[in-house]
Amino acid sequence: MGTIQYGGAGEAIHIDDRALAHLKVAIATKLRRNESFTLSWVHHDDDVRGRSTIWLHPSIPLRFTFDEPETPQLNVKWIEDLMHSANSSGGIQLIDEMLETPTD
């Protein structure tokens, strides 16, 4: 379970390492373009029930911390889906990975 630490205060946001690796690519792309946006997610089962949203801005410090030392193989489709949501009025919605299944 990785974390996002955003700004100077507040609690770390806990996100599965694989999801965080994909999210990092989408967030870094938006911030590199100097674009602000929101990030929303549903709380984990071991957290207080509900959902959260934060406003991401290029001038606010952001740190990604991963438990696993190796970067997972990235799913380009998942990154595209995250980027598509990032460009919407609702901002990035942390969605589950959709794996392509081969058709027989």
Rank of each mutant, 00 (worst) to 15 (best):
D67L: 13
I15A: 05
A19E: 08
F66Q: 02
T65G: 03
P58L: 05
L82V: 10
S40R: 13
S59T: 11
H84A: 15
T101G: 01
D67P: 05
G2Y: 05
H22R: 03
W78F: 13
T3Q: 08
D104V: 15
P102Q: 03
E35N: 08
Y6R: 00
K77D: 15
Q5V: 14
L56S: 07
E11G: 02
I92T: 07
T29D: 08
N34V: 01
P102K: 04
H44Y: 14
N87E: 11
S89K: 13
G2H: 02
F66L: 08
G90S: 13
I13K: 03
A26V: 10
I92N: 10
G90E: 12
T29W: 04
I27R: 02
P102Y: 03
I79L: 04
H14E: 13
W55D: 08
A12V: 03
P102F: 02
H57N: 08
W78V: 07
V42Q: 14
H43C: 09
G10L: 03
L20N: 00
V25T: 12
D104Y: 12
R18S: 04
I13S: 04
H14R: 11
S59I: 06
D96M: 07
R51E: 15
R33E: 14
G91Q: 02
I92V: 10
V76E: 15
R49A: 14
T53C: 01
E70Q: 09
L62D: 09
L82D: 12
E35G: 01
E70D: 12
Q73N: 04
I15Q: 08
H84G: 11
A19G: 11
S36L: 01
G10F: 03
A12M: 03
L31Q: 08
I92M: 05
A9R: 10
Q73I: 15
H84C: 11
V42F: 12
